[in-house]
Amino acid sequence: MKTIKNYFLLAIASLTIISCSDDDTPVANNVTLEFNNTFKGTPIVLGEEASTTATVNTSAMGQDHYFSELKYVISNIRLIKEDGTEIPYNVNNLDNGATVVNQSKEETLSYVLSEIPTDNYNQIKFGLGVKTDLNTLDEVSFPEFYASAGANDTEMHWEWGTGYRFTKIEGFYGADDSELSFHSGSTIEGEEGNYTQGVDAYRDIILDLPESANVGNSAPTIKIEADFDALLSGHTNTIELGEDNATPSVHSAANMELFVDNLGGNGSDDVTGMFSIISVEN
């Protein structure tokens, strides 16, 4: 923690020195992450049961489905410079470095990273969910994130697991609008590297930028697509919904992992999951 912070300060300090002798390029600027939640590229419109306006998707197994609720947590954001240096963005501070993307709230679809050191970046990493050491519902340390995640219209606290919900999807599937409910979260216990029980639902996402994000005179926007077609028809698993798994958080966490791997990758040969970069706007 401390070393990261020192490093960061050092980076800023050295940049300041350089920029003093240089022209009037700012030492840092904002980077905006824009989350576009789609079904195969079509923006998702939410809808209640039997809605005629909701975006309906068809899975690889031929099941129609649509969502009434769609939320997920993004945290542990890191921008990687062209020279490979990683710039962590408040990765140990959920109040300043984590957000709940909520499809029903326009303002949550963009997340602004402030004071990103001037440089060219060609990769972004972030977590879908909250990494284990911070996933404790620690209201004392991170009151703002705790409050926003726990708000009545957000419901991203997983009380019994004393952690956050990482993804929460409610919706309907099939000809008779059966209920679809997917909540993910970690149940892992013990110290890092020495877990004693449970499932880790946190996934680290790594995305190469198609062109560099040039931070400095410009404040770039990185447009990210989250294609929720992956929920049932992902890189890792093809899932047919039925009585056993339509509410996967609850029946068993084994089912949950199939969906988690689809959305967030399996951590080995798939590190993108449902995410991809649409474009970088400098």
Partner: peptide, 9 residues
Amino acid sequence: GGRSRVTGE
């Protein structure tokens, strides 16, 4: 889910 809620098994 009983114990499976925890272990995922």
